[in-house]
Design a protein around this nucleic acid. Structure first.
Lengths: 168, 168
DNA sequence: AATATTTTTCAAAAATATTTGAAAGTACGA
DNA sequence: TCGTACTTTCAAATATTTTTGAAAAATATT
């Protein structure tokens, strides 16, 4: 298989996976394109390679920068902005975990603590079902939160080593 | 706060989180409703409580059953079918991890192994960027896969205990 | 086997999310 | 300060996903 064909397949596949994850397809495609490009690319470059509009590139590149996955590169003497993706996949992975933790786990804690306020009769089966679900979710969310926190702060070798140990 | 108000808030919040996760909002709302209901509910019951159509209930309940999160309950002497959610949140969590692993990680491995076929000049920076990205993703996806496999098979106390240990 | 009840299907409608492209904004150099 | 090269914005257009609801299928009852 030719390199260009491989790149295209990768970009398509990454886009499909992204959209299953609830992430904008174009965003993940741009990310994939930048990942497999040795040199930083300009907006025009991305537009051309992915056949998408300027506005679309601008928006999604901004989102990727918000996620900390892509950086703006200014070349001396060039007026255009260029963009480059973090190539260390372990860093990318940690960054994604960090963002998702912030965006997905925090709202869970907020709603759960609000729901602690619910009053009811401890004899009532409905009340018990409610309280037990809430408590169960809280417990697992807390553990998930500390685990992800550790992961985000961890060095790859340390974390992977520990994982291997615990799977023995 | 009253129990009913708490349930409603929970259902709303869970729906919002679900849709951020790329999961149908109604599906997560039905799941939330069944989680906080002590008794199994019929389709009519769900329709009424969530103010949604029969077809919508039917589809999403089927999806929840495919995910293994909800079970059909037949009451003797009743013609209607009832539905009940698994209440043990640890089991729910494992089930979700199991499904997502199957649906999200497997396609990653498929595309990666296809991309191993790409030929190129090892001196070429573009080829190197490509190969290194692919290899980095493969490495992390493999580790994630074994970790999730362990988690899915694990007993709660064992897994949580080990996590605590590794975070020391 | 005719009728009643319940579930399933699926095409069309509604709701959401994404993309476009042109106008407005910004920064630079002469 | 003006013109040029670029970037950003955002309302409208498109695309995608979800929901509805009525008809068909399935199942139980008489």
């Amino acid at each position: 298989m030719e390199l260009q064909e491989g790149k295209d397949k990768f970009i398509q596949a990454w886009g499909t996976l992204g959209s299953q994850w609830g992430i904008n397809r174009t965003m993940t495609q741009i990310h994939a394109l930048l990942l497999v490009s040795a040199e930083p690319l300009s907006a025009d470059n991305i537009m051309e390679q992915l056949q998408i509009s300027r506005g679309n590139v601008n928006m999604n590149v901004r989102d990727l920068m918000d996620w900390g996955l892509v950086h703006k590169i200014l070349k001396p003497g060039e007026r255009k902005e260029f963009f480059s993706a973090e190539k260390d996949i372990w860093k990318v992975f940690k960054q994604v975990v960090k963002e998702r933790r912030k965006r997905e786990l925090e709202p869970v804690f907020n709603i759960l603590s609000e729901l602690q306020q619910v009053q009811g009769d401890p004899q009532d089966a409905e009340y018990k079902a409610f309280i037990e679900s809430i408590e169960g979710i809280r417990k697992i969310a807390s553990r998930a939160d500390s685990t992800l926190d550790t992961l985000v702060k961890a060095d790859e070798n340390w974390f992977m080593g520990t994982l291997l140990k615990m799977m023995k």
